[in-house]
C-alpha cells in the first residue's frame, strides 16, 4: 500500500494553515493541521482535483472605463486557468455593466460563468 504525505498551505482564508494530507493509493485518508472544516475540504481537493477562482478583466466598449473586473462565479480546475485568460482576451462587453452581470457564459467550456465584480457606467 503506497502511503504518501503532502504538505500544503491552505488558501481558503488568510490564516494559511499548514496542512498535511495523507494519501493512500491515491485516496485521501487523513487531513491534519487545519483549523476549520474548509481546510479539510481544501486539503482533499487540492491533492486530487485542485481548483481556483480566476479574477481578471474584460474589455468594455462605450463605458467610463476601458475594462471591467470579473471572476469565475465558482472554482474552476486549476488546469483551465490559461484557457480562461485566453477566452478573456477575446471577450468584450458593452457598458453599462453591473456587479453580477455575466460577462462570458460557460467560460472556456468549464461550465462556469465569468461574472462582473464592478460597475461600469455608460460614457
Amino acid at each position: 500500500m503506497a502511503k504518501e504525505i503532502k504538505e500544503l498551505t491552505c488558501i481558503n482564508c488568510p490564516l494559511g494553515c499548514a496542512l498535511e494530507v495523507t494519501l493512500e493509493d491515491g485516496e485521501v485518508t487523513a487531513v491534519s493541521g487545519n483549523t476549520c472544516p474548509r481546510g479539510e475540504a481544501y486539503g482533499k481537493k487540492e491533492v486530487t482535483n485542485p481548483t481556483r477562482i480566476v479574477t481578471s478583466t474584460v474589455r468594455v466598449t462605450g463605458g467610463t472605463r476601458p475594462v471591467v473586473s470579473g471572476k469565475t462565479k465558482e472554482d474552476i480546475p486549476k488546469s483551465a486557468i490559461f484557457d480562461i485568460t485566453d477566452a478573456l482576451a477575446d471577450a468584450q462587453v458593452k457598458a453599462p455593466v453591473n456587479i453580477g452581470d455575466v460577462l462570458v457564459e460557460n467560460i472556456a467550456g468549464t461550465g462556469v460563468d465569468f461574472v462582473a465584480t464592478a460597475h461600469v457606467s455608460a460614457a
Partner: peptide, 19 residues
Amino acid sequence: CIHNGFGLHTFKEELTGPE
C-alpha cells in the same frame, strides 16, 4: 484590488475588492 479573498470575516463569503 480585483482579486478575491475579501470579506470572509465581515460577510462570511469570499468577495473581490470592488464587491
